[in-house]
């Protein structure tokens, strides 16, 4: 437990020197370095925060721009769709009109063709029927038929009205009886007798032959014409055929 006071004072000096040395070489540099590092980290963090804010604002701006572009795109698309719709409907209308026009033209053509065809058909039919009937009757016609026709004419004269009988009676010219074939004398005399009975005995009766009658007989006199003729039947047939074609024509007109 001995204290060497010279050593003590030397150690005090030593310690104070060491304090200064360590302060100079250890504490100050280390603390300064740590402070600077802390400062740089803080700066970096601040910088990062600023950058993050900047990035966030830019991101917001870009998002806004994207949204704007999206809206604009949608608008343009809508416009394009609208215009496409308009064009489409316009084109459709035009096409429809065109089609309708073409169809009308076509229908008119068809209808014209049809009526021409029907007319032709009717004419041909009539001609054919007429021809057949005339040929058939020509083949069939003979004296017996003529006789029957004469009877029929006689019956008509028999049932003639009073005014017509008067007209025949007052006729200046002679009464002419036309026939397609030469009438037999018995038929002639029977006819003449009937006329004399019904109209009057003063009336002259002449007989003539007319091939156009086909198969018929007619009495002409006093402005009258009394006939039994196949032409009448054929005319009736023509009328009937015309009537039969009428619905076809109206149908084609409606279509």
């Amino acid at each position: 437990m001995d204290i060497d006071w010279i050593t003590v004072s030397a150690q005090v000096v030593n310690f104070l020197v060491l304090v200064w040395l360590l302060k100079r070489f250890l504490y100050q540099p280390v603390i300064r370095a740590m402070d600077r590092r802390e400062q740089s980290i803080r700066n970096r963090v601040d910088d990062a925060v600023q950058r993050e804010q900047l990035a966030e604002s830019e991101r917001d701006a870009y998002q806004n721009r994207i949204a704007e572009l999206e809206a604009k795109r949608e608008e343009l698309l809508e416009e394009a769709r609208q215009s496409a719709r308009q064009t489409r409907s316009q084109l459709l209308d035009e096409a429809r009109e065109e089609t309708a026009r073409a169809r009308t033209n076509w229908m008119r053509e068809v209808s014209e063709e049809k009526s021409a065809f029907i007319d032709g058909l009717r004419t041909q039919t009539l001609e054919v029927v007429d021809l057949i009937a005339r040929n058939a009757l020509r083949d069939l016609a003979d004296e017996t038929l003529e006789e029957k026709m004469a009877h029929s004419l006689a019956r008509q004269i028999h049932h003639l009205q009073q005014e017509l009988r008067e007209a025949l009676r007052n006729s200046k010219d002679a009464i002419v009886i036309n026939s397609a074939f030469e009438l037999s004398s018995s038929v002639r005399s029977a006819l003449t007798r009937t006329i004399h009975e019904q109209v009057g005995s003063a009336v002259a009766v002449n007989y003539a032959r007319n091939a156009d009658l086909i198969c018929g007989i007619e009495l002409i006199g006093g402005g009258l014409r009394i006939a039994w003729n196949l032409s009448d039947y054929l005319n009736q047939l023509t009328t009937r055929i015309d009537k039969a074609f009428e619905p076809l024509e109206t149908q084609s007109d409606e279509a």
Partner: peptide
């Protein structure tokens, strides 16, 4: 005496050690 000599040794170690490390400190 030995007290003073070894005190100087300790001082030397501490000072030189600190100086060696702190002469090129990194702040990064």
């Amino acid at each position: 005496n030995a007290t003073i000599v070894f005190t100087w040794l300790v001082m030397l170690i501490l000072t030189v050690g600190s100086w060696l490390v702190t002469r090129n400190l990194s702040e990064g």
